[in-house]
Design a protein around this nucleic acid. Sequence first.
DNA 1: GTCCAGTTGC
DNA 2: GCAACCGGAC
Length: 215
Amino acid sequence: MNKATDFFWVTLMKWFNKNQRSYPWRFSDDPYHILIAEFLLQQTHVRKVESIYHLMLTTFPTIEKLAGSPESKVVDIITPIGLTYRAERLKKTAQTILTSYNGKVPVYYDELIKLSGVGDYIANAVLCYGYLQRTIPIDTNVIRLFCRYFGLTSDNPRPRTDKLLASRIREHFLPELQYKEANLAVLDFAGLICTANRPKCFECNLNDQCLYNNK
DNA sequence: GTCCAGTTGC
DNA sequence: GCAACCGGAC
């Protein structure tokens, strides 16, 4: 890893140690909990997910419960956060895990990605947070932060969907240790400081070397 | 109006 | 590859 990347991670982790956010799903490494959390979090502000995550897990404490419950019961719970088609995918995925994987959330990317409603991001999130594997789920926050700081560009009008960009980040800018913490640090930093609108560059401790701030 | 811990199907 | 999906916050 080069010096600039090293400085980025060291500084970011320093910030994270003082400012990290606390969410219930961060206290679990149960792949089922992670799967539920990531399903709820897609295209949805974390604030809103906080309020129903607990209800989801108390209502469906196990994969068996979720697979055996009527879809409408899931819809009722997630209606307040929108994208209710997630209910059908959640139930379908629970059933698949039950019947095809003996009730255990798959450990392989190729299997995860086949589940209904599970794409590249959720598959990597389950592997990283649930199975503590050395991978990074790349979402809109990761893309935004890296593009700004390192001046990465994309031909794609929606950079967050740019697969080439994602592979470049995976290849060149990943930390060597503490994958889980590093991922969370990016999410928190991007959510609190390097926000989509009106980023708080004035209170950013990375602003010295940030290409976005110095452009 | 834009954005959100994205995924899917056209 | 890209729009559509959904509700609420800013």
